[in-house]
Amino acid sequence: MIDETASTTDDTQRDASIGYRDIIRALVRDPLVLVSVIFLTLLILSAIFAEIVAPMDPLIPNIFASRLPPLSYATGLDGTEQLHLLGTDALGRDMLSRLIFGARASLFVALVSVFVSGVLGTCLGVIAGYYGGWVETVVMRAVDAFMAVPSLLIALFVLFIIGGGLVNMILIFALVRWVVYARLARGITLSLRETQFVEAARAIGASNARIMLRHILPNMISPLLVLATLEIALLVLAEAGLSFLGFGLVPPEPSWGLMISRGREYMREAWWMITLPGLAIFLTTLSLNLIANWFRAVMDPVQRWRWLM
């Protein structure tokens, strides 16, 4: 009876329990992900503590210091010499301060909408795929209907009626974007529902809720996570687009999207006004993608050991 046990002696480090220490070790080993984590942490912290971190007020214009390139000095409204590390915009407001305050709006809208729409869409998708029948028909026809109309167009229309602003924007994004998660979740549920381990769970008396939560959901985390990171990038841009059209945040309020739309007019003479917020969006989504990919692998028992070894 001593058959296959020999093969397991060399992989004791593939054990199940992983502590935060293992995660930190794995992070250090992967510098690209480490940099992304640091960047995102700094970004989120500075967005939360924007009042303390930002060198200047992002809303007060200074006509005499408009369109200054990065690393230039200007006399502020209070008469002191001030360094504009990343330059100023068309109204002389400090770019760095506006980027920091803008991160707040952009990230908040994107993260919260992705969370709300992801939870909503995944739940509906799993339920539709698991139960089938009329539940599935109703959910999936709703998905088809939402898919058939460009989501930004719906958002535009609804925001036009109920008015813009942060909360409305989050609600609208959740309303139009849940469909992508629902479609993915339903598809995966359809295949997982037929697997033998789900049958085995049913054979030991697991309830439907338990099968969905413990057996189906954990096995679709990876693709959902990848989708969610892509959606964050998409929503940062959608927020930018809607704000640009005047249906999102109201202008003096800083957001990366608004900054790009304003900077667009000065693209020739002041490159930093459009490049810097664009870079912020790019770096944020890139870091999110790298982290999500890494997180997905670390969360997957089959791939984990490669990253933790």
């Binding site: 033998q196 085995a200 054979a203 030991i204 008396g205 954990p218 096995n219 028992p301």
Partner: peptide
Amino acid sequence: MRARRCQLQMIFQDPFASLNPRMT
């Protein structure tokens, strides 16, 4: 039926598909 499931069990054909990969 669920309450009686304990008395009747099943062993499955494919040992690679019958265990949830996310559970120890």
